[in-house]
């Protein structure tokens, strides 16, 4: 089979490009440690979240030194809790599920982004920095009111976080 020398050159360059892309993604996983949403969580019954220990009361709770877990329920058309209040300079793991249809969970302008599928729990861990307020949006069409489905993720100072959790009943 006859292939022109230039085309062979281009073929080699193309393979190099592909290796660059695969290499970058692998570097992202190994270097900065970017991890994918995965099958780490067991399936749940989306129609019985009321009886689920984690999701009957969506909340943020401290689970270790500087480690927090946020249990979030997405539904037509909102998120609970809202706002999701988390402390600065901490490691936060979001556990997000849906009690009805497929939704998205996107902290606008950041890398915190996942599908939310009924019956499954999406687990993503992020590290917060300074206090700031992010918009939280559903980025998967979920019904006629999809565009009103929004929430907030508020990163607050440690002092403010503790103030808030000790003030009320944690709600």
């Amino acid at each position: 089979m006859h292939i022109h020398a230039y085309e062979k050159l281009w073929l080699a360059a193309s393979v190099l490009l592909i290796l660059l892309l695969l290499g970058s993604v692998t570097y992202g996983a190994v270097g900065p440690g970017v991890a994918m949403v995965s099958d780490s969580e067991q399936p749940v019954d989306a129609t019985a979240l009321d009886e689920d220990e984690r999701f009957s009361e969506p909340r943020v709770e401290q689970v270790g030194e500087n480690e927090y877990a946020a249990y979030v329920v997405a539904f037509q058309f909102g998120f609970q809790p809202d706002p999701i209040v988390i402390p600065e300079d901490s490691t936060v793991t979001f556990y997000v599920t849906s009690r009805d249809v497929i939704h998205g969970f996107e902290v606008a302008g950041t890398n915190a982004n996942t599908m939310v599928v009924p019956g499954e729990v999406s687990e993503i861990t992020v590290e917060t920095d300074e206090p700031t307020e992010y918009g939280l949006i559903c980025n998967e069409y979920c019904g006629a009111g999809h565009h009103v489905m929004e929430g907030k993720v508020n990163v607050v100072s440690q002092a403010e976080y503790e103030n808030q959790t000790s003030g009320g009943d944690g709600e």
Partner: peptide, 18 residues
């Protein structure tokens, strides 16, 4: 900027895009 696809009204009440 994080603007979602598939939505009638991509502007939200609680925040603005960077």
């Amino acid at each position: 900027m994080g603007v979602p696809r598939r939505t009638a009204e991509p502007e939200y009440s609680g925040f603005e895009y960077a």
